[in-house]
């Protein structure tokens, strides 16, 4: 018989297992409390800002109601305040920026991952990171002084040859002997080009990261089946990186929506509700704040803060969706097509 009934042995009683305790030592308690305090402080600061902004929205919305979102003019002296035109302007600038930045970011990401020689790759990555670090005011100078003369030529060209499209319309005669260059400057188009320089690196960085995670086996399988390099990119890399492409583009758009100083430098403010990016004059929420905060009374300030809060909410939604899409994309999770 291999089992034995264990009898009570007084000698064994002393060997009861040690009491395990999850009590922390003193220094650990201090550490936890301290870091929790820091976390709570940061939560209070950052959350406080959001709460404060939300709080500011109440008096404004109670005063102007829904017309705050539908009114195009911003005339505090006439008690007419609305953000419809600046919202449209913000969207226009962001749209122009992403129209330019998206193909460039995609091309740059694909070039870095697929086409560039291996020894160039890390310097190209650094180049894109550097583009993200260049201050926005530098891009503003670039857009205003270097790009604007050329961009107005492009705008005039677009109007001349594609003016039948509603969004290429400009309120000026394209075929005049001396075309009015000033009608084509300081527009959402030029501002969008400068903002594209800021949005592009963010989008490109996300795309590059996702593309470089494409499973090597699938790449080589496509190539071994006789695919060309572009065929491999189209059937393996791009489907794999779809989440990164969408998410990166949205992250870039989040940056483009909030950009201030480059836009302020370039545009000439106007409050028309229009979608004519090539034409002079537009306005964005951030440019509105930068232009109007100085002479604002407290109630106007809370209106500006409300506009800022709306912008923040839009950016937040865009960024959250972007993060969700990137997180849920298929990053090395096997082979499901």
């Amino acid at each position: 018989m291999s089992t034995a009934v264990r009898t009570e042995d007084p000698a064994l009683l002393a060997a009861t297992p040690r009491r395990l305790s999850s009590n922390q030592s003193g220094s650990d308690k201090v550490f936890v409390v301290l870091s929790r305090t820091v976390g709570a402080t940061v939560l209070a600061i950052t959350g406080g800002i959001g709460f404060f902004l939300a709080l500011q929205a109440f008096p404004t919305l109670r005063r102007y109601g829904l017309s705050f979102f539908t009114e195009t003019q911003w005339q505090p002296e006439a008690d007419v305040i609305g953000i419809a035109s600046v919202l449209v302007g913000t969207a226009t600038v962001a749209l122009v920026a992403m129209t330019v930045a998206f193909p460039l970011a995609l091309a740059m990401a694909l070039f870095i991952v697929e086409y560039a020689p291996a020894r160039l790759r890390s310097s190209l990555v650094a180049l894109v990171d550097l583009m993200a670090a260049v201050p926005s005011i530098i891009y503003g100078l670039w857009g205003f002084f270097l790009l604007q003369p050329h961009a107005s030529n492009v705008a005039h060209w677009l109007q001349t040859y594609a003016g039948f499209l509603p969004f290429f319309r400009v309120d000026a005669d394209a075929h005049a002997a001396m075309w009015e260059q000033s009608r084509y400057t300081a527009s959402a188009f030029v501002a969008g080009l400068a903002v594209a320089m800021m949005a592009m690196p963010m989008a490109c960085a996300v795309m590059r990261q996702v593309f470089s995670q494409t499973p090597l086996g699938e790449r080589e399988a496509a190539l071994a089946l006789g695919s060309t390099r572009w065929g491999m990119i189209r059937t393996v890399v791009l489907p794999f990186g779809r989440g990164g492409i969408i998410g990166g583009t949205m992250l870039g758009m989040g940056r483009a929506l909030g950009e201030t100083i480059a836009v302020v430098l370039i545009i000439s403010p106007s409050f028309d509700l229009k979608f004519r990016p090539l034409e002079v004059g537009t306005n964005t929420v951030s440019a509105l704040i930068a232009g109007r905060f100085g002479e604002a009374s407290p109630s106007q300030l809370s209106a500006l803060l409300t506009a800022g809060f709306v912008l923040f909410l839009i950016t937040l939604v865009v960024n959250t969706f972007a993060a969700l899409i990137v997180a849920n994309s298929r990053s090395g999770a096997g082979t499901d097509i």
Binding site: Q56, I289, F293, L301, L305, G308, T315
Partner: peptide, 30 residues
């Protein structure tokens, strides 16, 4: 440290990275 409170903090901090810099300036100004 982690825990539920840390998740709250992380959510709020990540959300606040979306704050446009001009709004941060306007907040301090006000």
């Amino acid at each position: 440290v982690g825990g539920r409170f840390a998740r709250v903090v992380r959510t709020v901090v990540e959300a606040m990275t979306a704050l446009p810099s001009i709004v941060a300036g306007l907040f301090i100004y006000t």
